[in-house]
Design a protein around this nucleic acid. Structure first.
Lengths: 239, 239
DNA sequence: CGTATTATTGACTCCATTCAAAGATAGTGG
DNA sequence: CCACTATCTTTGAATGGAGTCAATAATACG
């Protein structure tokens, strides 16, 4: 994206509605301005479009403005594994930090717009805006903690995994100002199963079971959480 | 590389035998000197000692000089899950980057010595030594990639998990200058099982099976890899 | 040397997968 | 707008991989 496009859009970090949850959180007004000048607004993508592909050169860290995405790792035999899903306001691209080459792929799950904090400016920018460095470390730390939480969750029984997944979505939607009780699953049963290491039939059966127990209402991809405390209890009970 | 510096009495990053694999990799001589001045050499710990505990204040990033350690997450019901093991020359502590508070515990698996890059100097130090920032981002990126690899591996059959674990150890030992074919498992069967999400009996049975197939020799914790290619093939075969 | 921890091995059980088939939903073009 | 098709979801029945239980053996340790 070129600079005239940026001027045309008139969207900057300063007036972006995500400014509280994206990178600039924790930065002063003038610091946000500085960062905003190098942030690139990228074009909108459609469902199924790749944001980046495994092996692509790392060009920068990305922030989702609207829409959702999935991170997928391609394993040896060509199957793909959904590592994570990304909601509006969340950051991605950290898998490129190690060797300037992406280590997994990112795919839009629906119409999606995003911003980029270019990698080539990163060092100088952090020199100019020291607290940006701190924020970036915070975000990398957060990603590490999330991934490790996923490792722990993935070794628990199917029921707990799905409950944790739903609770996680609820919390994250809530943090972004969406309803914590009513939301649309951005993934198919197949994809949820893939993400949680379960068969799609298991997801279907468990959603039904959760509904029967009065924990949630399910209508295809539409979820209504009816008893969030009991749902939370599912994975905080001793086995 | 730095052989002319190995005359100093004190152990510094400049003459540390780990200088190729620890933080200073990628820094110039003078930069390593600068970093070396703030690095703290910590006292030696014994098996079972905590390096840090879940919830502890984050004091800095740590590099293991000798010995091995495990990272453990305490889940809701008091069970612990071994997230990773750390070999000499490897870094830990990144789980404290998010909110200046450790998100898991680190425990010595044997007599262990380590260094600390203090957190309170980090911002200024990165201002003075810009390439340190790049190196730190590289390391955080590496941790993220490793954890995600773990997520993918953990959803595969038991045989593949254990093969991947052994190959991973072999590669990492090799990178540190140890034998890639002969090494001692730093974990009990119980701990390996915990780490891989398998029962300890399954580990025992699979090690036996690998030995019977001529892939490895097992003598309690002593492992000899006899056919590393076939071992690698176990998890690069289509299912 | 005796005790505690760790490892092996077998038999049985169970959670989740796989296979299979029918039903629902969304998207497309005539 | 409806019919047609592809995709997604539900549900049941059978299978199997890994867990659990249990008992013995080996190793480490004070």
């Amino acid at each position: 994206m070129n600079s005239e496009f940026i001027k045309k859009m008139q969207v900057t970090c300063t007036n972006c509605s995500l400014d509280e949850i994206c990178i600039p959180r924790g930065l002063s007004h003038s610091e946000v301005d500085t960062v905003s000048q190098v942030i690139k607004r990228k074009k909108t993508l459609q469902r199924g479009d790749f944001i980046y592909r495994d092996g692509d050169q790392f060009k920068g860290l990305l922030a989702i403005k609207s829409g959702t995405a999935k991170l997928i790792a391609d394993d040896q035999d060509g199957n793909e594994h959904i590592l994570n899903i990304l909601l509006p306001g969340e950051l991605l691209g950290f898998d490129g930090l190690f060797n300037d080459q992406h280590n997994c792929s990112a795919v839009a799950l629906e119409t999606l717009s995003y911003c980029e904090l270019p990698a080539d400016n990163l060092e100088e920018l952090c020199q100019q805006v020291p607290s940006l460095m701190r924020e970036l470390f915070r975000h990398t730390g957060s990603k590490i903690n999330n991934d490790r939480n996923m490792i722990v969750i993935n070794n628990r029984p199917a029921e707990e995994r799905l409950a944790a997944f739903l609770i996680g979505l609820s919390d994250r939607f809530s943090k972004r100002g969406f309803s914590s009780s009513d939301f649309t699953l951005p993934l198919t049963r197949q994809e949820i199963g893939n993400h949680l290491g379960l068969a799609l039939e298991t997801i279907s059966r468990l959603l039904k079971q959760f509904q029967t127990s009065g924990l949630i209402n399910v209508n295809n991809k539409q979820i209504k959480i009816r008893d969030i405390d009991s749902l939370r209890n599912i994975f905080s009970q001793p086995r």
